[in-house]
Write a protein that binds this DNA or RNA. Structure first.
Lengths: 290, 290
DNA sequence: AGCATTACCTGACTTTAGTCAGAGATAAAT
DNA sequence: ATTTATCTCTGACTAAAGTCAGGTAATGCT
């Protein structure tokens, strides 16, 4: 009962019954679980019928019938996809939106009451983030995003906060050469966010410059997602983005207070070069030719 | 996506699919999930048919049919209960034990491969323990146990380890007045363990003496279970046990390096008294009249 | 243009899960 | 000793989930 495997299995049991309870509460709205799941998938922005089917792992016949039953209830409408008339896209009707909101409220209430029953909520949430990241590590998706998006700004906020903790003199963005958002957007650059489900858990920026090279900026991996090789995946994605933009030379600056970052650069083909800017924070500078 | 409720919901989604994957692997043994669950419950020592039914939340008709199908497969046998011939007890046949072992292997392999895929296993396990305790907090059961049982000894080991960390001079059991196991067993005393599912997460001992009082010893709550009011529940249970044993006066010793314990005693009717033993570790002494 | 492929749908099934009423045997209460 | 309650079982259902073999229309490929 004390070995690691038993602890994982105890966790599995605990979580199974919690998940079952939520499913059961969904049943309370008088609709089979399958239909409720489809409705919720659509509500969460999966409009493409095929995408919902893949996401829920449903047989196409079953999926079709569930869509029909939701249509009969007046909760959704389907129409042919604009680009490809074989595909169908579904959307919520007004009544469907109400019903979806009711399911959302059930889920939210469940989550809130769970949190309210517990002390030390922040420790509990951190533990849940860690476990969720570990469970979904094979499903972490990298996506190019606008550096002004909510997801990107969340990452940057967390990144700055972490620098503030790690640098003994603290960190003040306004003193650093904060890259302009447009320099990290195509065609000049790129900004890539790692998403685990709906939670951003890492990012990296590729900043175009006038000097014949681009810079890697804002490489960050959430504490709950470390040890999964995500830093390398983000760097690889940034290099690929650079290649598609026709960039042949990359540079970056970093600080020796972030040893794991330096280690990553050294083992992935970067070589140390002399200081190439006057930013007060970095004390290590690297370059890589693509 | 960054607010607490979203984090809980992300966690829910992550574990839902993980749990679903395990269920799916169970299906691989060619038996419906319901029957597999019953087989596993019996394998885990729930022999009483009614107990399995309650545990799995099954209708009695359904339960009966599942038992019949397992019997037809030659995996279990049932017979009337010795004390009450209305009740039935089930047991695994030789083939049933093999099949149960196969399910166990599936669960264990799943847990092992999950652990193997992750770095920082201890941090991950600690997070899982914390979450599991929070999820099952309403199902923590207190049980009187032999202080020599595996569960009790696990608690004591953890307790000593914690004292070693908390006392600046460390902690060596052999220097302390370690109570004899028989003093913490009926009729002289009692030992109570808090179980969350199969994991012991707290304990308390009631040690009978020759001096007209009993002592509270070894009050411990696992770090992953703190903040749930478990310390108070354990103390209440120990006091109740003392009452049933006809004990009217309780004493205990503790150390000011454990402030949360002192706080608990002070707020639950204990009053500080002068030193009443020569144990080198404690520096605070309490008494309570029942 | 012709043929294969894809996306979705329908009809005809099977399996699993779950419900409910009542029967039969045993045990507990009066 | 009779009545009442409890435990398990059987029969007769329903609902939900899932499977499979076509069928239709649109699209992609050569």
């Amino acid at each position: 009962m004390l070995d690691p495997v038993s602890r994982v299995r105890r966790f599995n049991r605990a979580v199974t019954s919690a998940v079952g309870a939520l499913d059961h509460s969904f049943l309370g709205r008088g609709r089979p679980l399958g239909a409720a799941r489809v409705l919720n998938a659509i509500g969460h922005g999966r409009f493409d019928v095929g995408e919902v089917r893949d996401y829920l792992g449903l047989d196409s016949g079953l999926m079709s019938r569930l869509l029909r039953s939701l249509e009969d209830e007046g909760l959704i409408e389907t129409q042919a996809h604009g680009d490809d008339a074989r595909r169908r896209v579904a959307s919520l009707t007004r009544a469907g939106k109400r019903e979806f909101a009711a399911y959302e409220a059930l889920s939210n209430t469940q989550a809130e009451s769970f949190l309210a029953r517990n002390a030390q909520v922040e420790a509990l949430l951190a533990a849940m983030d860690l476990v969720a990241s570990a469970l979904t590590r094979d499903r972490i998706a990298l996506a190019e995003m606008d550096p002004r998006s909510d997801e990107a700004r969340y990452c940057l906020r967390e990144y700055y906060a972490e620098l503030g903790r790690r640098f003994k003199q603290g960190f003040d963005v306004s003193l650093s050469r904060d890259p302009d958002a447009k320099d990290m957007r195509r065609p000049r650059g790129s900004f890539i966010v790692a998403m685990s489900d709906t939670l951003p858990i890492g990012c990296v920026g590729l900043k175009g410059t006038e000097h014949g090279y681009a810079e890697i900026k804002r490489l960050w991996v959430a504490p709950s997602a470390r040890g999964l090789g995500l830093g390398k995946r983000l760097m690889d994605a940034a290099e690929n983005a650079a290649r598609t933009l026709g960039i042949a030379l990359l540079r970056l600056d970093t600080n020796s207070a972030l040893p794991e970052a330096g280690q990553l650069y050294r083992t992935t083909g970067w070589r140390e070069i002399p200081r190439f800017n006057d930013d007060p924070y970095p004390d290590l500078f690297f370059e890589k030719r693509l």
